[in-house]
């Protein structure tokens, strides 16, 4: 039994239940409403993955950007700082390095949103 076993189903189960129900109902609807349900199901899948990964992506992003910029701050503060530096051309000489950092950052977000669209080199390792 889990720590919260007396208050089940847990939140992941609740989201998955709604997602599965939407999948069952959608084929019975016309194209427009079915599409709305399909997208709603996609949002629930995404929420489930984010729930599972916690704040990993944000923590990693803060660490990467801090190293790249040689500065301290929250992930949001550092992201704004990076945006300003890019627009000013201050990172033109470090183009490949910046591109690599942004790609690593982005891949973690895509793993939450739709991991199936990632190129093979970026897909999560399965054991």
């Amino acid at each position: 039994m889990t720590e919260k076993g007396y208050f089940s189903p847990d939140i992941a189960d609740l989201l998955a239940t709604v997602r599965d129900t939407l999948k069952q109902v959608a084929p019975q609807l016309e194209r427009g409403p079915a599409y709305q349900l399909h997208v709603s199901g996609f949002l629930l899948e995404l929420a489930l993955r984010e729930l599972e990964s916690g704040d990993t992506a944000a923590v990693h992003s803060q660490q990467r950007l801090s190293r790249l910029l040689g500065a301290e701050g929250s992930a949001v503060e550092l992201t704004w700082k990076l945006c300003r530096a890019l627009r000013a051309g201050a990172l033109d000489a470090r183009w490949d390095e910046v591109l690599q950092v942004l790609l690593e950052d982005n891949v973690e977000r895509v793993r939450i949103v739709r991991p199936d669209v990632l190129a093979a080199e970026h897909r999560p390792q399965t054991t």
Partner: peptide
Amino acid sequence: RGPVFAACGRNTALIEYELLMTLAGR
């Protein structure tokens, strides 16, 4: 409000992936 509009916000990560992979020549 609507699920499609909400999804658009998160879909930016997918488009940015294609953008970065294109800029990287991959």
